[in-house]
Structures are given as structure tokens and as C-alpha cells.
Design a protein around this nucleic acid. Sequence first.
RNA 1: GUGGUUGUAGCUCAGCUGGUUAGAGCGCUGGUUUGUGGUACCAGAAGUCGCCGGUUCGAACCCGGUCUUCCACCCCA
Length: 459
Amino acid sequence: MAQKPSIPKGTRDFSPAEVIKRSYIFDCIKKHFQLFGFQPIETPSFENSETLLGKYGDEGDRLIFKILNSGDFIGKVDDVTYSSKSSSSLAPKISDKALRYDLTVPFARYVVQNQHTIDFPFKRFQIQPVWRADRPQKGRFREFYQCDADVVGSNSLLQEVELVQLYDAVFSELQLEGVAIKLNNRKILAGIAEVIGAKNNLINFTVALDKLDKIGEEGVKKEMLSKGISESAIEKASPLFSFKGSNAEQLDTLQYFLSASEIGTLGVKELRYIIESVEEIGLQTSTLSIDVTLARGLNYYTGAIFEVAAPEEVQMGSIGGGGRYDDLTGIFGLKNISGVGISFGLDRIYLVLEELNLFPKAIDQSLQVLCINFGEKEALESLKLVSRMRKAGVNADVYPSKTKIQKQMKFANSRNVPYVIIIGEEELKNHILILKDMKLGTQQKYTFDQLDEVILKLN
RNA sequence: GUGGUUGUAGCUCAGCUGGUUAGAGCGCUGGUUUGUGGUACCAGAAGUCGCCGGUUCGAACCCGGUCUUCCACCCCA
């Protein structure tokens, strides 16, 4: 026997039960994307390196999977580069393609490339795998799916309002109640930095602030200090560390706090509009709240920032996120196209639904009825009935070989088949079938002519 | 990328300071039941102890490397 085969670190096989549960989530998300007027696109799993590199920061570049060129790719490298043993200068010479790292940048590329055939505003959704050369952890993989919905070509804050509704609709349908949608605005973060006098240290300030719930007030202050933010600035920002109250109260406090900052005031105005609009329309099961410490990847967000936290009873962190980016397509040469989008973290949603036991009970009933095989003649008759049932939309099958009834029943049981049809020699002669309810253990006789009744029962 | 952690039967895990033939539960196969699963009882099969190397008379156990798992950073879904 050869050595056991294996799969690369951070990748997974999915069993039938897992694929079915994952499709349940995919289907729900997809359905709501379409209900909200989004259209599907797909892009290649790999892009030209220059499309991806430099778009996610140095950290991101390191995590991009690079694809080796074909043919004699080493022979074409000049001796100086080859003998330099420097990965950063060698890599571009031997690799000019890379695996998709997220869906947003390829989408931006798509929009720029197809700008003349797209009707703006363009609402697109995309559900495809992405790859990251990260070190795996629970709920973090090197190959995973992203489910994104973005709108480009509209500045309207109505989009933000709709995206909050979309989150609520999806999680409500998944029976995942108590999801916390957190909202912030990057203009508010910029305003805060301006007001406290840390304007040119915005990124370090927000990255540190984002960690508040994780490392606490002291930890955040320490990190800010180490990143060169002055003590007086941190002192001015300290009200933020214990920011409480209703959304309305927080908005008023923020408005006052940021009154000296033009951009901050604009941020508060935007935030207020979104919050008040959502409150007017109402949410089914989720809550929407302001979180001034929310920052996320700041590379391209310019307005609203979303993050969705799983219900408190599960330790899972973020199960979705998104935001507004005023100039995403600018990196590919198309200016003044504003976009806003959200993403669902499929793998984490899966783990949460599993932990809270929220998958539908009958989700693993992929087969509705199985016919026991008593031999050639009987099986042939069963097949006739099965084909009629299949036409009526019933998942039906015949056990392929004549083995012990015991074994066939056991198979039906472990496949979680709710009904079994028994047609033996005696039944065949009299044109009847026995329908056994595997849950109750009861059985009932029907003539072949009564098959429609059986189908009705199975549906 | 940094530091740590994990790997023993299909699955979940025991296995003492290094010492005969590596165990349990669940699952699987067969039987009690040759036309009835899920319960019960009986029997059985199944492991190069992640992989490679080293120390030792002797290694699942000690050492080194490697892969994998999970965790904390980094970053992020």
C-alpha cells in the first residue's frame, strides 16, 4: 500500500453532508442577492500579477499565491537576478500570474474593462473561492469562498441602507437571530484623528483603535504610543474608549465631538442618515449599532464601514463585513466611480449554524424513498415505479443488487431515507407494493395503480 | 512571516520512569433472525503508533528534521 494521500495545508474535502449544508447557506445568500436586484458575475481563478500585487498592502502581497511560469522559466532569468538569491526580485521574473486573493479587486478590474457595456449603477454579486497563503486557524483557510455583493456607480446612501437590510434578510432566513450589525464611517475616523491632532497618523490610530474589544483600553493606548501617537492626542481620544448609549445619543455626542472637523461632521451626517433610515424601515431579527472603534482594512474604504458579529453565545467574531470605497476603480484608471459592498463569511456562518444547531432537521434526507431489491424481475418492476416517481419530483432509487433484506434496510437507515418500498415475489404477483415508514416502523399496502397516492405522501 | 501546540484502529481517545503479543468506546463485518433497519446479546476483522533519520540491548514514549492540526501574534473572511 502506498503512503496515504493527503491534501495541502488549509484546504478541505467536503463530504455529501457538508456540501448539502454549505449549499443551503449559498442558496439562501444567492436568493437574497437576487431579491435585492444584484446580478451574478464570475471572474477567473487567476489574474495577471500586476492586477493583484500592491492592492492589499505589503502584508497582502506576501499572502498572494503566485503561479510559476510555464516552460524553461529559470533559463530565461538573467544571471545577476538569479545569483542574487532575492525572492522579491526573482519572483516577478518567474511568475506573472497569481491566484485570486479576494473578489473585490477582480471586480474592479472587471468594471474598468467592461465599462462600456455595463449599465450603471451596477449591482453585482459573486460567489467564488479565493486563495491566501496564510497560516490556517479555526475558521481560517488557504482556500475559502467569498460571497460578495457590491454596487458601483451610485453615491446614494440608500445603498448602505439596503445592504443592512440585506444582511438582516439573509441571517433571518437562516434562523440566525441576534446578529449584531456594526456600523461606522471612515470619515468619522478621519475626523477624530483630525480633532485630536493625529491627522497624519490615521492608519496607525485606527488600526490600534480597532483592537479595543480585544486588547482593552490599556492595550490600545500602549500600541498608539508605540506607533508615535502623542500622549495628548491619546488623552483627547479617551472618551471614545468608553463610548456608550443609544445610537441617537452616540450620534449627538459624536456630532459635538467632531464639530471642528469638516470631514468628521460629514461622516456623522452620513451615519445619521443610514441609522435613521434603517430604524424607519425596521429590521427582522438583527440589531444595528454604531461602533466608533470599527475600522477594518482601511486600504480602500472611504465612507461607511460594516461588520457583522455572530450572536454573543458563540465565540466566532466577524461573519461578514464591507464598506464604501469612493475610488476603487481608480487604481485601474477609471475615476469617480463610487462603490459600496458587503461580504458574507461562509465558513464561519457554517460553524455558527452548526454550533447553534440551526440547520434544518431534514437537510440530510437526500433520498426520499429506496426500493428493496429482491431479484431481477422485482427490481425491474421497482425501476418502473421509480422512474414514475422521479418524474413527479421524488428522489427515489432502487438498491442495485439482491442482497440480504437486513443489509438493504440497514443501508436505508444509515442513509436517513424516510421511506422504503418492498416489492417481493408475492407482491409482484399481486401488483402491490409495501410502503414502510422508517421513522414510525409502520407499513402500508398499495396497488401499483395507487402510485399517485404514494407520490403524494412522499412529497 | 514569529512563537507555541497536536498527530496511536474508519471516528473519539487511553497507553505509567523507555521493557513481552499497543488497548477502550463508537463504527464496521458476521451470527442470534434465509422477507424487515433503528434496540439487545454473541463473535470477528482492523494500527509500520504522521513521515524520515538518530540515541539505545530495546522506542508509541527520548533527540533532530519534516508534514499536519489547533492556538497567540501579524493580518483577515
